[in-house]
């Protein structure tokens, strides 16, 4: 069964095309890497898949449901860590996580237990600081905790590992693996190709404007009969290697 299915999705901002006729399917239980250069439309695509943005045309199905049918019902089943993190600055971490948990309908006992466990595991126990006073890495961990607190079936993570220390990344990877082992789906965008190569089972690469140029198994990195040694080599081949000689630098 497909956890995510995009059919001919187009997203335009006025005359600017951000996503062009994108069709994509992600099987349930997959750790899926969604790659592309800066400005290629990755975040816009995630925005469309999570109900933040309306696609200009095309169809999006998450867990077999379409967003226009009952968006609240789908949102209950997905978790999202947006690129901008979406944190409420004047709140303390436990207040923020408890708010998110309650909004997702978790009962009070479960809310308190999960918030405490997440804060402990992610080393966010410093309750003297509001979120606005946290470092970038700590803020990222809070956003990750908010995305998983209701134990969603599909998890969308936009650049999840940047700014987080190696121990934190290692822990998050463990959780994500367990997550997919249970048949749930993770959809990740990242520029850290080594990490994607290590944890993802399937990858899609898009180029500007949101055009799918490759999708396949991470273990079979082939394009037009040509085999690539690494994801980076394939990525650069598809998106175009750049060079500029700045003599003054």
């Amino acid at each position: 069964m497909d956890a995510i299915r995009l059919t001919n999705v187009v997203k335009k901002y006025g005359p600017v095309v951000a996503v062009e006729n994108l069709s994509l399917s992600v099987r349930a239980g997959t750790m899926f890497g969604f790659l592309g250069p800066n400005g290629s439309g990755k975040s816009t695509t995630i925005g469309c898949m999570t109900g933040l943005l309306d696609p200009s045309s095309g169809q999006i199905e998450i867990l077999g449901q379409r967003f226009d049918a009952d968006s609240a019902a789908i949102k209950r089943r997905i978790g999202v860590m947006p690129e901008t993190l979406g944190l409420f600055e004047p709140l303390y971490a436990h207040e923020f996580l408890a708010f998110v948990a309650r909004m997702f309908g978790l009962d009070e006992t479960t809310t308190r237990r999960r918030v405490t466990e997440l804060l402990d595991a992610l080393e966010l126990k410093d309750t003297s600081k509001t979120l606005s006073e946290y470092s970038t890495g700590m803020r990222k961990r809070v956003a990750f905790a908010a995305a998983v607190i209701h134990s969603p079936e599909v998890l969308f993570l936009d650049e999840p590992f940047e700014s987080i220390d190696p121990a934190g990344v290692s822990l998050m990877k463990q959780w994500l693996r367990r997550f997919t082992d249970q048949g749930r789906t993770v959809f990740i965008t990242s520029h850290v190709l080594e990490t994607v190569e290590r944890i993802c089972t399937e990858v899609a690469i898009i180029t500007q404007p949101g055009k799918l140029v490759w999708q396949g198994d991470i273990n079979v990195l082939q394009h037009n009969g040509q085999h690539f040694d690494s994801l980076e080599a394939l990525f650069l081949h598809l998106t175009g290697e750049r060079s500029a000689d700045l003599n003054w630098l």
């Binding site: 109900g51 979406g86 409420f88």
Partner: peptide
């Protein structure tokens, strides 16, 4: 940026 969070809530 937290406005985005409102739109993600069920």
């Amino acid at each position: 940026g937290a406005f985005r969070r409102y739109l993600l809530l069920p």
